Simulated assay, not measured.
Amino acid sequence: MRSSLKLVSDGAALNGDRPFSHDKSDDHLFDAYSRAVTGAAESVSPAVVNIEVAHAAGPRGNSRNHDAPAGSGSGFIVAPDGYIMTNSHVVHRASRISVTLSDGRKSEAELIGDDPETDLAVIRITGSNLAAVSLGDSHAIRVGQLAIAIGNPYGFQCTVTAGVVSALGRSLRAGSGRLIDNVIQTDAALNPGNSGGPLVNSRGEVIGVNTAIILPAQGICFAIAINSAKLVAGHLIKDGKISRGYIGIAGHNVELPRRFVRFYRLPAETAVRVASVEANSPAALGGVKEGDQIVRLGETTIAGIDDLQRHLTMSQVGVRTPVTVIRGTEQLTLEIVPSEAAHKSRE
């Protein structure tokens, strides 16, 4: 029996042996895409750095102990005088930070500020007239637009990957447990070592700080929006830390009885149940008790712990703020004055 299998080569087509005809009508699209990626990479890559960190190998104060290598990541120069933005988890608790520039030069870096709550940090190297990135506006980006990631995955310096902005407004849980809002989702490939590198648009403007991937999924990667990063970096450069409000409670999310929701016309069916109150804390001084269910902070609805953390900002510090709670079957409005949360040591 004669086989019906036909080999296709040298442009032969399966349909009637007609030569394959390449439709060139889309060539300009591929050319434009290539120009956008190469242009952005050439513009940004000189400002992308490789970061290597070491942690103290033994008890502090023992001069015989040497630093132990702890990992690496990426960063990008945001000012010509050597300020570099990266992820907190790249440099957190590092005893030594070493930076390699795109041209191969190496320099020791100083930690300027570190905020695990947003997974952002700023370090600085000594230098002047260094190549620096242009920061974009993350409010202006759209789902589907080109996204280009540049970093040092597994130590392969200045690796470029490209994809699109997959979604906006995602939330990501930081290592501290706090929720990071307005996170960008992209399918531009990220790998270990990309953390802290820039996510850029087709104009070569940084729109995000690459920070996380979901394993074993493919093409689900996240970057902290650059507008959030600019705000945090400004405070880190100025003060070395981010100030946040503190009221001194531990709590968990609970569902409210429907009769309470209807009777008090509450906008949410969940709240924060206070599990404990620290002695002499703002909450204790304001009359908050264990078992209270917090439903509002000022005029803001509190549907869970994330809402409470999100709205305890530095603008609340020292400001007398009403807190609405359900105690038993009664709705009460208390007043507290949030204080500044103690900055967590890097040690």
Rank of each mutant, 00 (worst) to 15 (best):
S4K: 06
V8T: 08
D10N: 14
D10G: 03
N15P: 00
R18A: 14
R18C: 02
P19Q: 13
S21W: 05
D23M: 10
H28L: 12
G39V: 10
P46D: 10
A47W: 06
N50E: 07
E52D: 07
A56W: 00
G58L: 05
S63G: 00
G73S: 12
F76P: 02
I84A: 05
N87G: 09
H89W: 12
S102Q: 13
K106E: 15
E108G: 02
L111T: 00
T118P: 00
D119L: 04
I123T: 09
R124H: 04
A132S: 15
V133L: 01
A140I: 05
Q145P: 04
I150M: 06
F156A: 09
V160K: 02
L168C: 08
L172K: 12
I180S: 06
A188C: 09
A188W: 03
L190M: 15
G193V: 03
L199V: 03
G204H: 07
V206L: 02
V206W: 01
V206F: 01
A212R: 06
L215F: 00
A217Y: 11
L231F: 10
V232Q: 01
D239W: 07
Y246A: 01
I247K: 03
R258W: 08
R262T: 11
L266P: 00
V274E: 01
S276H: 11
S281Y: 10
V288A: 02
D292S: 11
E299Y: 10
R310C: 05
H311T: 09
Q316A: 15
V317I: 15
R320F: 06
R320W: 02
T321Y: 05
G328S: 09
E335H: 13
R346F: 04
R346S: 14
E347K: 13
